[in-house]
């Protein structure tokens, strides 16, 4: 790897990206990769599960991407990126040694404090597993702080399930109940077929609704139906947390794009309790 390039910037200026290098690239699915990024200069950026970074592809633009692994002691972090638009297509194509601009961390994280001492239910749909992975890792690191830990994953096909290399390691643990369901199985799939909200009913008998904290991330429709399932089983709205996706450009509540009602999802979100989101989240096109 070449020496990191020097970068002159002001630390107080929220608009300037920090230089990072791609150190590893892992293909997750046909259109999704996970990039491991390493800071090219000191100091590195912090970050907690559920927060996001703004990633710059040189000369192309900038996009918000949640932390799938939070920075370790050397500042190394991971992002799982799906090629959807021009910037993400370029990010997905990066190779080890390539430059990435990083700003952040931005937004609210998953409320792990609230989850401590309670049953935790993580529900992810598709790429929504990325921000929940960092939460899962934080929980497993201090497993004894939590009661039942349940992870429900939905994916389009078996080959669209993220983090398949490490999934078996989590599945083998007897202190985590991890269930995967797919919409369209292939010939080799021996697991569940169906949508992720259905799994809530399956696991509901194993958690105590009044002592459960749920973190949900996935497409809006999947989150809506999952919330309803959780409500039906008695989980209260202020213990159901959603991570929302919107157009985010500045990350600090100045550019105005990510508004949902009174919220700037880049700083008031992306993780918010359903109790606060409720009056606005289900209003169409708000």
């Amino acid at each position: 790897m070449t020496a990191p390039g020097p970068v002159l910037r002001s630390l107080v200026d929220p608009f300037h990206p920090h230089p990072y290098r791609v150190v590893a690239r892992r293909r997750e699915t046909s259109d999704t990769v996970t990039l491991r990024l390493c800071p090219a200069t000191d100091p590195y950026l912090p970050g907690s599960p559920g927060q996001f970074m703004m990633l710059t592809a040189f000369g192309i633009g900038e996009v918000p991407i949640s932390l799938s692994r939070v920075p370790d002691r050397s500042g190394m972090l991971e992002h799982t990126i799906r090629a959807v638009g021009s910037v993400t297509r370029h990010l997905v194509a990066l190779r080890p040694g390539d430059w990435v601009g990083v700003r952040g961390p931005f937004g609210t994280g998953w409320p792990l404090d609230l989850a401590r001492g309670r049953d935790v239910l993580l529900v992810a749909g598709g790429l929504g597993f990325a921000p929940l992975r960092s939460a899962l890792e934080a929980i497993l690191e201090r497993r004894q702080d939590y009661r039942r830990v349940t992870v429900l994953l939905g994916a389009r096909t078996p080959s669209d399930v993220l983090y398949r290399q490490i999934l078996p390691r989590w599945q083998r643990r007897n202190d985590v109940d991890l269930r995967v369901t797919v919409d369209r199985p292939d010939e080799r799939w021996r697991g569940q077929v169906g949508v992720v909200p259905q799994l809530v009913s399956q696991v509901a008998p194993s958690f105590e609704p009044t002592e459960t904290v749920a973190f949900i991330c996935g497409p809006d429709v999947m989150m809506r139906f999952t919330v309803r399932e959780l409500q039906r089983h008695g989980v209260s709205d202020d213990r159901i947390f959603l991570s929302l996706e919107r157009n985010m450009q500045c990350g600090v509540g100045l550019c105005g794009h990510c508004q949902l009602g009174p919220f700037f999802l880049c700083k008031d979100g992306p993780v918010l309790p359903y109790s606060r989101l409720m009056p606005f989240y289900e209003v169409r096109e708000l």
Binding site: G154, R156, P197, Q198, V221
Partner: peptide, 20 residues
């Protein structure tokens, strides 16, 4: 009804590639 609801959601192909 649950199974019909699930089938309807499956029809949506929620995690499919976004349409530009």
């Amino acid at each position: 009804a649950e199974r019909l609801k699930a089938a309807r959601l499956q029809l949506l192909d929620l995690y499919g590639p976004p349409r530009e």
